[in-house]
């Protein structure tokens, strides 16, 4: 690969940090810095110009949501840098905070995803390329407590799967690959979903994620 991806990693567990560094280097990704806290992450950002930041949610000093806050700052101060936040727990609120911006290049994944090495690296590359990814668990959680269950019930099981995949941030090609169906079928399902839920088809994957998540999360207004 000519355009080698470069990342900065922030993760307080030394064991896991070393594991991720090894994994990424093994996949041909350049790790510019690996730090253990939010403050160190901001220092590293000032020093390096990575394509992507991988940050843990809970880090010193308070062990609460430093990672999310640092990610939001990075998106504001370094607009060109993509951010992937890793979390031990599914927190839909964090996902909402991270995705709130207008541009793509954001990811919110459970730490478990790291274990599927190839998928993880692929997600990383998609996010670095401007895609948006939300962990399937988060999407399922949002779906599970969405107040739109009556409207969602109108979807066929296949359309529901497509909706979930859209919320996770997959492109049409990605959805086709994941569900093992043709590109044409995906497009048909998507247009059905948008029609049944009365959603405006957005431009680009990130807009689409936002639209779907907003729709699911917001039960009061009529789309």
């Amino acid at each position: 690969m000519s355009d080698e991806l470069s990342v900065v990693i922030a993760e307080d567990s030394v064991l896991l940090r070393d594991g991720i560094v090894r994994l990424l280097e093994d996949a041909g990704i350049a790790v510019l810095a690996a730090v253990g806290g939010a403050d160190e992450l901001m220092d590293a950002m000032a020093e390096h110009q990575p394509d992507l930041v991988v940050a843990d949610v809970r880090m010193p000093p308070t062990h609460t949501d430093e990672g999310v806050r640092a990610a939001l700052r990075i998106r504001e101060e370094y607009p060109g840098v993509a951010v992937l936040v890793l979390s031990q727990y599914v927190e839909e609120r964090y996902a909402a905070d991270l995705l709130a911006g207008d541009s793509g290049g954001v990811g919110y994944l459970l730490k478990d995803r790291v274990v599927d090495v190839e998928d993880f690296v692929a997600s990383l590359r998609r996010i670095a390329a401007g895609g948006s990814e939300v962990d399937g668990e988060v999407v399922r959680q949002i779906l599970g407590r969405s107040r739109r269950s009556a409207e969602l019930d109108r979807l066929t099981p296949r359309e529901r799967e497509v909706l979930e995949a859209m919320a996770e941030g997959l492109s049409n090609a990605g959805i086709a690959e994941k569900l093992v169906i043709s590109g044409g079928a995906v497009e048909k399902h998507i247009s059905n979903v948008f029609q049944k839920l009365d959603l405006e088809p957005g431009e680009g994957a990130h807009r689409r994620v936002l639209a779907v998540l907003a729709y699911l999360g917001d039960g009061s207004s009529g789309a």
Binding site: D12, S13, L15, L16, D18, G19, I20, R22, L23, D26, R58, H63, Q88, K111, D112, V114, V115, D116, V117, E118
Partner: peptide, 23 residues
Amino acid sequence: RNLHDGVQQQLVALGIDLGMAAQ
């Protein structure tokens, strides 16, 4: 905290090792 900082991270790191080993 003990679970989060300890065992959970260890298991993820362990998963990385196994994932890479499989590759």
